[in-house]
Design a protein around this nucleic acid. Structure first.
Lengths: 231, 231
DNA sequence: CCCGCTCCTATAGTGCCGCTACAGCACGCT
DNA sequence: AGCGTGCTGTAGCGGCACTATAGGAGCGGG
């Protein structure tokens, strides 16, 4: 019959699973339902994805990738802190508009591949802030705070409904104020904040550029000293 | 025979379930395993708890209550912001030391009774801050920010392991700095911050004391005006 | 032209799960 | 004694994730 053959096997299962997960509203989706919706038998699913968790990881990665692709070509505002702000809003928007897929990524103790991918993007944004001398804590510390707070905000919004009270924006600004220094370039050069910020910027620049000319041991010691300067 | 009869039925099931959940490390616990560990049949469990979710809610409430009981009689430091700080630390400590029970409460989109109970405690702490004139945003806004951020921190620590980098303390201070005003009482009385804070304090005091002497409509309008003064 | 090799897939289960129909037992009231 | 009420065990139902086994489709080498 006229059944399409270009979307055979794996893709059909993936699309059917993504649709069922999006429509399930949080309740678990059975592999039987996925197989029935995709018009395949159970062994086909397990051949392509190994087990149910593998399928759900693929659905999560697919959903995240699709969303990021539709939102990429972000202009790059010129201000890395604004870029980070935009990244936070993108994260929250994705979670609120795809709650079931979001729960697949951040709703369980384990850390699926999609979460690592998202964290890598966050690290890149925070690294740009550090390179601009606008960070007042180590890159990893800032990234962890931003990750934890934004995930908490999304889970709260999904569980309790959006209140329109600016929970996301308020929490974002609270965390950003704690990890960044204001844009003002006229701060006294002897301020401890400025010293910490420049140490942070150097630290980030060193770990970004590949040829440092230091031996591994020297680079490690320098990194340690710079970290100590940031308090 | 000499079998204890004081801990019959319900209690035995609850204790067995709590033990299995704590030992399961996050993976789901089967009702069959609970029945076997408690030495009862399946109908006994369903007679007392309705269904599996009812049992898990009871386990969550039991675990939370036990922890709060062991930590209550908190001295009351005199500073309501410090009390709030202590409440945050208590919440994080509970989540990190009882990850499985914590996941039962905050790991799913639905909001079990234990979560409502914990949120009520948080509202009380934030209300005390407002009554002291130390809050710069509405009570509900502050409580939501604190709830979202602290849950995010705990889930991050459970999933990625404690880093010793003070993630919890840093995020706590970031949020508290955003929702409270510093202790300093020498601020100019004409400052907008002070005006907003006193409006907040009045707002909280009004909703705390039962006899306001206003009609419901008057109270609602007054509350609206006070909220507007807080920006 | 056919053989055999490798993918991919379907039939038909296995064992575990949440949950329940039904019957029996102990106990208190009349 | 008679009897209703409430808790409990035996046995089982349908659904779950997952799999042992086997068969068809394409393809390079004789």
């Amino acid at each position: 019959m006229g059944v399409q053959k270009d979307t055979d096997g794996r893709d059909r299962i993936l699309r059917a699973a993504a649709r069922l997960v999006a429509e399930s509203g949080g309740e678990p989706v059975s592999t039987r339902a996925v197989c029935a919706a995709a018009g395949v038998g159970a062994p086909t699913l397990y051949h392509h994805f190994g087990d149910k968790q593998g399928l759900l990881d693929a659905v999560a990665a697919h959903g995240l990738e699709e969303y990021l692709a539709s939102k990429r070509a972000q202009p790059g505002t010129g201000d890395p802190v604004d870029d980070l702000r935009h990244g936070w809003d993108l994260h929250v928007e994705f979670g609120v508009s795809h709650p079931a897929v979001y729960a697949l990524i951040y709703g369980s103790p384990r850390t699926p591949p999609a979460a690592d991918e998202a964290y890598a993007i966050l690290l890149g944004l925070v690294g740009a802030v550090a390179r601009a001398g606008r960070l007042r804590v180590p890159v990893e510390t800032a990234a962890r705070m931003i990750q934890a707070a934004s995930v908490g905000v999304v889970l709260f919004l999904v569980a309790n409904g959006d209140d329109g009270g600016g929970l996301s924006a308020r929490t974002r600004e609270a965390v950003l104020a704690a990890v960044t220094v204001p844009k003002d370039p006229s701060a006294g050069p002897a301020s401890p904040d400025a010293r910490a910020a420049s140490a942070l910027a150097l630290r980030a620049a060193l770990s970004a550029g590949p040829p440092s000319g230091f031996s591994p041991a020297e680079a490690a010691l320098l990194a340690e000293w710079l970290d100590r300067l940031t308090g």
